[in-house]
Design a protein around this nucleic acid. Structure first.
Ligand SMILES: [Zn+2]
Ligand SMILES: [Zn+2]
Ligand SMILES: [Zn+2]
Ligand SMILES: [Zn+2]
Lengths: 143, 143
DNA sequence: CTTGTAGTTGAAAATGTCTTTCATTTATCA
DNA sequence: TGATAAATGAAAGACATTTTCAACTACAAG
């Protein structure tokens, strides 16, 4: 079940945030695709519809959404941030096409056993993990 | 089996790189521990022994080593780079203490099956993965 | 042991990403 | 219809990293 921009809009209102046209523009872009975008890419797209959004506001909106747990970030390749809209609360990970940026979520993550083993072996108290696959999607393969 | 600074030194020579005192200083630091360092941390340590290395050179040396596949990076927490010397060719991943930065390598990574499943389900040609655990190491827990 | 030279260096400037500041504007609600 | 707290854009700031360039040096050929 996917967040829609409408659902998020009402969620924001609930939390006491104002729903400005700029925020709407960012939401529309993020919700419209499974690609991941960098803040600058979102900025550029947002300006097409709404020429006076500032990059600063894009950053602020992204930070707000991230704080609310509504975004995930993609980590592989590069040290820029890139964001994807998040499916609600479920633990999940990403499979990313390194050509076109499409992100597929998957939930099957059997790392519990490995985590326990590592914990036993090292004495670490493990409290999180990062798992990402990268590759080339079907469409990109055909080119 | 761990890379030693001596082994790397001869490897660099083989590849036609000059072995300067600055590069030696960076190598010594990276090879001397399993901690991961940021470029600036390496710079600061290097200056203790060799006061006229520049930060630029540290960056250049790190990039050179990374291009040769001799370094791993740690991805979690933050968007600074941090580097650890890499054990030769073996596939491995990192368990990172988010307090003190200690990195433990582990090789047991059973993602093949999951990878195949994802590949079948999505049509992706998967060519890599990123796996990292983070937590708190034994020593840090006691504080 | 010279000496030539391609590769290397450091300082400073440039780039790129993200955040802070602040005066002005605006969404929301009593 | 205001009142007001929140949000905005421009500009400046903070960092991490890269580029540029003139001076330097490791190293091998003579
Ligand atoms: Zn997981
Ligand atoms: Zn693709
Ligand atoms: Zn490693
Ligand atoms: Zn693996």
């Amino acid at each position: 079940m996917k967040y829609t921009n409408r659902r998020i809009a009402s969620l924001l209102r609930q939390k006491g945030f104002k729903l400005t046209p700029q925020r709407r523009a960012v939401l529309d872009i993020i919700c419209s695709s499974t690609e991941h975008f960098t803040p600058v890419q979102i900025y550029e797209r947002a300006r097409q519809e709404h020429p006076d959004v500032g990059l600063v506001t894009v950053y602020r909106t992204l930070n707000m959404l991230a704080a609310l747990g509504l975004l995930c970030q993609v980590h592989m390749d590069g040290r820029k941030r890139s964001y994807v809209m998040r499916r609600p609360a479920e633990h999940h990970h990403h499979l990313v096409c390194s050509q076109c940026g499409t992100v597929v979520d998957f939930a099957s993550c059997d790392l519990g056993e490995l985590e326990e083993k590592l914990s036993r072996q090292t004495g670490f108290e493990i409290n999180g993990h990062l798992l990402e696959f990268s590759g080339c999607c079907q469409e990109c393969k055909q080119k």
